[in-house]
């Protein structure tokens, strides 16, 4: 048991697991470059469901994904053991150190625990998150929230770039107003998610698949627009008006707050740590 604990807490193992994760992510980025639309479905599908659907049929292009998760899981254990061992060692020496020095020494361990929180948060998001898209058209009813509430799309207003600019005819912002049966309004616009009954609601634009049957798809360099991550064409309302569809994205992401809080804490603590270390080095140089 002690041997296993030591092996798991080895820094050499941490290094090679990070290199392994780098290689897996880099490989994944190359595959995603070949088939953007295939991998983009994973963004809005729980990981286990997506893997179950593709592991046999598409193993040749997704093999790196289980490998990545193995590396990240092992890295999680490694971080936990390493950081815990270090923390215990430091706590034993606590009385011999000045308060500030102790906290500076403790900081890398705390940062590692926070990184663990981020990995866990992402894992929760990937497995328990849900994303649902609903097309938005004026007058139509949409159902949102955990206990679905019927809401009517009251209005959709487009705000375009100024006519005198080179971006004229392109959408700068959109305002959508949803109303419930009591007439209460729920305004939505891009980049401003709204929380509704535990669900985050936000706007997104997608190519209109139904219209695409009648018309040839928009292309860049002979490739369908869906093959690209940049959707500038979709927001250019003239003249391809029929090819885009405004959608409501309803998100339940139980890992989100873990990720964001840990990210913020890591940033503050890491900056403070490196500034403290740099200041201590500079002080040591002067004496």
């Amino acid at each position: 048991m002690i041997t296993l604990w030591r092996a798991l807490g080895s820094l050499k193992l941490a290094f090679w697991l990070l290199i392994g994760a780098t290689a897996s992510l880099f490989t994944g980025s190359l595959y995603a470059n070949q088939d953007y639309s295939f991998f983009s479905t994973l963004n809005e599908t729980p990981l286990h469901i997506w893997l179950a659907a593709h592991i046999k049929s598409d193993f040749d292009i997704i093999w790196w994904l289980p490998v990545l998760f193995i590396f990240m899981t092992l890295l999680g254990f490694n971080i936990f053991v390493c950081a815990l061992n270090r923390m215990i060692r430091l706590l034993k020496k606590r009385k011999k150190m000045a308060g500030n020095r102790f906290f500076v020494k403790l900081m890398p361990s705390i940062i590692h625990f926070l990184f663990l929180v981020i990995i866990t948060g992402h894992f929760i998001t990937f497995t328990l998150g849900s994303w649902q898209r609903t097309p938005l058209n004026i007058g139509e009813t949409v159902y949102i929230g955990e206990k679905p509430v019927a809401m009517t799309v009251q209005s959709i207003k487009h705000q375009y770039f100024p006519e005198h600019s080179g971006l004229r005819g392109r959408v700068e912002q959109m305002q959508v107003v949803l109303t419930d049966e009591r007439g209460r309004e729920l305004p939505l616009s891009f980049l401003k998610p709204v929380s509704f009954d535990g669900t985050m609601l936000q706007l997104d634009m997608r190519p209109n698949k139904q219209k695409a049957v009648d018309q040839p798809p928009l292309q860049i360099d002979g490739k369908d627009i869906n093959e690209y991550c940049n959707k500038a064409h979709i927001y250019h309302v003239q003249p391809q008006k029929a090819d885009k569809q405004l959608t409501l994205l309803s998100i339940n992401d139980p890992g989100l707050y873990l990720i964001l809080w840990a990210f913020t804490a890591i940033l503050i603590l890491m900056t403070w740590y490196f500034v403290s270390v740099a200041a201590a080095r500079s002080k040591a140089k002067h004496f």
Partner: peptide
């Protein structure tokens, strides 16, 4: 990414390559 696309991490070339640099 979350505000604009609804995920903090996306399985795209850009995000994975970026994460690869960070882990490296």
């Amino acid at each position: 990414c979350y505000l604009g696309w609804g995920n903090t991490f996306r399985w795209s070339t850009r995000h994975m390559a970026s994460a690869a640099i960070w882990t490296l």
